[in-house]
């Protein structure tokens, strides 16, 4: 027998205060230390889509991703395309080839990456989609739409207008 409960702020708290709108075809799976948001999608759920916080500059992260595909690092950010995430221009990184994520995993041929990196002050948000090249290509628009759909939701944060009692 199931019951229903009323909505509370528990239902309106999101990781990093960011509410996302993934397409129906993406399925949420448990998060990890580096993947605060974790999805699988695409044909046979062969594509991984995940997001998290990172450190280091946007460019160094982008170059690290290129390195995972055996590509040479680029000298500056202007090489990359840009999309807007939460009101800030963010790097759009693409790569194709043999994907070698390291950490003991075997390299995978015919893979592709589509990723976005948003820098704001010291905070770096990364969004990454990796999978068989064709599948990733087919999900390109979804991914960009997902990144651009993010919104800041902070209903649980006390707004300045509230009276603050004398401490």
């Amino acid at each position: 027998m199931t019951e229903t409960r009323v909505l509370t702020l528990f239902d309106q708290k999101y990781p990093g205060n960011l509410r996302d709108r993934p397409p129906l075809s993406w399925r949420r799976i448990p998060p990890t230390q580096f993947r605060a948001v974790n999805f699988v999608g695409g044909p046979d759920e062969s594509v991984e889509i995940f997001a998290g916080n990172s450190n280091g500059a946007g460019l160094s992260n982008a170059n690290r991703w290129l390195g995972q595909f055996g590509l040479s690092p680029v000298p500056d950010e202007s090489t990359f395309a840009s999309i807007e995430i939460l009101g800030r221009p963010s790097l759009l990184v693409e790569a194709r080839g043999s994907y070698n994520p390291g950490m003991g995993a075997d390299p995978r041929e015919g893979f592709a990456l589509l990723g976005a990196i948003r820098e704001s002050g010291g905070d770096v948000l990364t969004f990454k989609m990796v999978g068989p090249a064709e599948a990733v290509e087919g999900m390109r628009d979804e991914f960009i739409a997902y990144c651009e759909s993010l919104e800041n939701v902070d209903l649980h944060i006390i707004k300045e207008e509230s009276e603050t009692p004398e401490s």
Partner: peptide, 29 residues
């Protein structure tokens, strides 16, 4: 701020669906 607590020594499974805007609807427990 918060408007909820969590009861000690209890375990529940909550299943919630979303409305068109992507907001969560009252979950089934």
């Amino acid at each position: 701020k918060s408007d909820f607590a969590q009861k000690y020594h209890t375990t529940t499974i909550e299943v919630a669906k979303l409305d068109e805007e992507g907001h969560r609807l009252p979950p089934k427990i």
